[in-house]
Simulated scan of single mutants.
Amino acid sequence: MTIWEVMADADRERWTYVPSVSVGPLRFGMSPAEAAAAMAGFTATLTPIRPDNVLRAEFRRAAEPPSSRGALAAYFVESDSLFCVVVDAQSGPQVTIDGVELVGRVPSRVEAQLLELMTARGFTLRYQWEGNPEAEELGLSMRVQRAGDVVLTRPVFAVFGDRAATFWDIMPSDELKVH
């Protein structure tokens, strides 16, 4: 896979997002060891992130070289409790909520579908300062990632707990650098 290549949907794993519970096989609150065990077919590279005081686990498919793009990043507070999962737009699994596909999509299309979903649930779709939509009640922020001359959706899934009052507060600082 080249730097700008986007994985075909047919080649992506298919996961479901359950707000405040799980993203595919990853359950919020699990440890890095539990996450690694749940991610069959993937390898993880662990990195402490300062000044956030969190541990980042970057998961790659086991068959891919270490230099390949990570399919997703999982963040652990105090190194022992999963609180955030970010899925790569180009190579991550396809994650859905109520039939809405969230990964590697045209941002305006996902935004429209999220607006419909949030309205049906009686919630309001909000926007972060840089214009990305977020569904705070669902623990979901739709960021974007460049893939050549286009941008595609790169969802951030999180649980707030005692760590933050807003989505912006909980966003790991290294995720703010991805464009």
Rank of each mutant, 00 (worst) to 15 (best):
P155S: 03
R143P: 00
A164S: 15
P51M: 10
L140Y: 09
S31L: 04
G92L: 06
F83C: 09
D149K: 07
R146T: 13
E134T: 10
E130T: 08
M39C: 14
D88Q: 07
L115R: 15
G24S: 00
V144A: 03
E130F: 10
V156I: 15
R163N: 02
R163Q: 10
F123W: 14
V144G: 02
T119V: 15
M142V: 15
E101P: 00
V106R: 07
Q113V: 05
A37G: 05
R143M: 12
G29T: 14
N53M: 13
E116M: 13
R27D: 08
R69I: 09
Y127C: 01
E137K: 12
M30W: 05
Y127N: 01
V77L: 08
R126S: 12
Q145V: 04
L115W: 05
R126Q: 14
L117A: 09
S67D: 11
L115F: 07
V100M: 04
E64M: 12
A33E: 11
C84K: 01
G29R: 09
P107D: 10
P66K: 01
I49G: 00
F76L: 11
Q145G: 04
P32E: 00
R61F: 08
D80P: 00
R126I: 06
V100A: 02
P93C: 02
F157W: 09
G148C: 05
S20L: 09
L102N: 00
A38R: 04
S68H: 11
G92H: 02
